[in-house]
Structures are given as C-alpha cells and as structure tokens.
Amino acid sequence: MDKSWLQQQVLERLAEDLLQAEEAVQAAHETATHEENIAENKYDTLGLEAAYLATGQARRAEAIRQALATWRQFRPRPYDADKGIQLGALVCLVDAQDRPQRLFLGPGGGSMKLLSGAQLVQVISTEAPLARALIGKCEGDEVSMQLGPSPQQFEVVQVQ
C-alpha cells in the first residue's frame, strides 16, 4: 500500500471539506446580514444565531486550512525497526478475534477512513489513544488499551 497515495487521498478529502466549510460560512454570513433578518424586537434572534453560526463555520474552515497545510508538509518516512512505529507508519493490527485493522498514523486534522482497493484504512492522528499506545512498538508486539468498558488487545502484524 502506498503511503503517498493515502496522503493524497487525505489532502483531497480535506480540500472537499474546506470547500464545504467555506460555502457554509458564506451562507451563514448572508443569512446573518440579510435585511429581512434584522431584529425587530428582542425575541427576533435569527440574524444573531446566523452570525454565531458563521463564526463557528469560519473557525472550522480555519482548522481545515491548518490541517491541509500540515498534511502538505508531511513526509511519511519508511519504517525503521530500531525506532518502532512513528508518525507516518502504516500499521496492520489484529484483534483478539483475528480481525485485521489497518491504520495510517498522520498529523492532526486528518482523521478519516479511506478505501485502498478492497482494504479499509483508518487515518488517525498520533494524538489518538491507540496511536499513542502504538508509538515505539514493532512487528509482533502486543498492545493493550481500555476502549469503552472492556480492555482491548491488539497484535502488530505488519508495519510499513
């Protein structure tokens, strides 16, 4: 599986998200400033609510812009067994029921699921609890963590 292809997919998805967020900002701004939405009394809050929505959407758009910039600068490195799993690793885990799970550890802002051929790849930030548990691990290592009410066990099967 090609890490640069996965990175490109993340960039494309973030670009789509940014476009949607910018459209939402514009729509909320237009609603907030439209002359029909000028408050006529203290109970008429549509314009005020739209202004709050526009502010929130603008913050969301800025967060996506920052994630895009980070992902554009990101250069996944090949796996180094001496360092173990690090940022940029493509990891295959199996759980206690031998169900495989593929993870791509990337910078923040790109958490999403991608389809690579017939394989589902979960993109997670190194800030995610599972990613933090994986940092420094190598092929064959086991990882235990509390997910919900019960502990989960994973084995690192493959790292790229």
Rank of each mutant, 00 (worst) to 15 (best):
L18P: 02
L103N: 12
P107Y: 01
A89Y: 04
Y43Q: 08
D80C: 03
P100T: 10
R65I: 00
V25G: 01
G110E: 10
K42S: 12
M145F: 04
Q57T: 00
I38H: 11
R72L: 12
K83F: 09
K3Y: 05
L87I: 05
L130Y: 07
L68G: 01
L53S: 15
Q152C: 07
G106V: 01
G136K: 08
F74E: 04
L18V: 02
G108P: 10
A81I: 06
N37T: 05
Y52M: 03
M1G: 07
Y43L: 14
T55D: 14
T55S: 15
S144C: 11
G136V: 07
I135H: 13
A54Y: 00
T33Y: 02
Q153S: 13
A133R: 15
L53M: 06
E35T: 02
A28L: 01
E35Y: 09
E30F: 04
R132A: 09
C138A: 15
L87C: 13
E62T: 00
V91R: 05
E35D: 13
Q152H: 10
C138E: 06
M1E: 06
A67D: 00
L11I: 05
D98L: 10
E62A: 02
R102A: 01
D82L: 15
G108S: 13
L11F: 10
V156P: 10
V123S: 03
V156W: 11
E139H: 03
V10Q: 01
W71D: 02
L18C: 08
L147P: 02
G148A: 08
M145R: 10
F104I: 10
E40M: 14
R72D: 03
L147T: 09
P78D: 15
A24V: 00
G110V: 02
S150M: 12
G88C: 06
T55L: 05
L147N: 07
R99F: 12
V94H: 11
A118C: 00
E62N: 02
Y52H: 11
D82F: 06
E36Q: 03
C92F: 01
V91H: 14
T31C: 06
P107N: 04
S144L: 06
A28S: 15
L6M: 09
Q20Y: 01
P78I: 04
R59N: 07
G148F: 04
Q66A: 12
G140H: 04
L114M: 07
L105D: 08
G106Y: 02
L48E: 15
R72E: 15
S144R: 14
L114V: 12
R132I: 01
F74G: 07
A67C: 09
D2W: 03
Q7S: 05
E22V: 01
Y79A: 02
P107H: 08
K3R: 15
L6F: 08
E62L: 02
R13L: 05
Q158A: 12
Q152N: 06
Q119W: 11
